[in-house]
Design a binder for these strands. Structure first.
Lengths: 177, 177
DNA sequence: CGCTTGATGTATCTCCGTGATATATTGCCG
DNA sequence: CGGCAATATATCACGGAGATACATCAAGCG
């Protein structure tokens, strides 16, 4: 009964103190989303499966006016999470990059079209770099407040990563004529 | 009736002279796979849909002993492909990186564990860089033989991309103690 | 040569995930 | 305090990933 990577996202978010599907999704959307996205359609059914497996414990929660279900990690869930964190299995890596895909098929097109494509790619990554930088102050505050907390390291990697692509695009734009 | 990105992969591969689902998948697996993977479970049904839409024309092909179906682009398929290649819609981008995910949740872990994680990530990307470099001679030969052909530009981006991550990991390993 | 075995080629099937949507509750503004 | 936007919770329809099935071909072996 292998767990999916997204299952571990859920376990991890529970450890970080989130307790409902909604809260998990909200945090994912401003953090892991950039290197591991997750949708409601995964999170809710997966919380159910994890409960059946005994990795999380859920109970109906009436503390708010809304009907909802709150979860927490079980001992076994904690253990499963730690095992995954320290395991040395091959790491899943996957990239979906429409811009590169278009370039791949752009041989038939004139060079100015290819330069334009590099420019469009750059624009997207500039946008993402921007977005990450806007998260940074928040993350830094959280980090100094309650210890490492929301791993800055990963955020900083993200920024360097986007910047690298932006620079590469600039070089290609210059070259492409 | 929006086409998926993978539909365009198929159209593009047909333009490059591939004609069966198997041939398309084979080329994908040594080229676009690194920034846009595709599975049989996508390719075969999608060829069917594209035929219904009139973007490809398929016929039973008895030239080999095997029962199979060959496809080619229609005029309309050519047009759809070109339109996509030059359109300025926002580009889809998505990353799935298990190593970063683990780091994100590794706050609770001792620093030497985090350094180990950066090392594991580096190992994966070194492997991928290697793999791309092994494709390069082939691609260069193809390029000089029949013009641009198999876009070198994209391959070279891939190598630089992997190298960037490898270098970044090295820096983090050094820092992590 | 006939047989076995593994590689290649072609395709489908099951189950999971994505993105959209449904529905309920709360907060806010006049 | 009525109406509407924002928030919160969840499900559904459809497409896609990975595994598997099945057929053909090639290669070695007695």
């Amino acid at each position: 009964m292998e767990l999916s990577r997204t299952s571990y996202v859920i376990l991890g978010m529970l450890r970080l103190g989130r307790s409902t599907g909604y809260e998990i999704k909200s945090l994912v959307d401003v953090s892991t989303r950039f290197f591991w996205a997750a949708s409601y359609g995964q999170i809710y059914p997966e919380l159910g499966r994890l409960e059946e497996l005994g990795l999380v414990r859920g109970k109906p929660d009436e503390s708010s006016g809304r009907r909802r279900r709150s979860y927490e990690l079980t001992e076994e869930g904690e253990r499963a999470l730690d095992e995954w964190l320290t395991s040395t299995e091959a790491l899943h890596f996957e990239l979906r990059h429409e811009g590169l895909l278009k370039l791949f098929f752009s041989d038939s097109l004139p060079p100015e079209e290819r330069a334009a494509q590099w420019r469009r790619i750059r624009a997207e990554h500039e946008r993402m770099a921007e977005q990450l930088r806007s998260i940074a102050p928040n993350a830094r505050a959280a980090a100094s407040e309650r210890g490492p907390g929301m791993p800055l390291e990963v955020l900083e990697f993200g920024i360097a990563y986007q910047d690298f692509i932006v620079d590469y695009c600039k070089r290609m734009e210059a070259e492409e004529d």
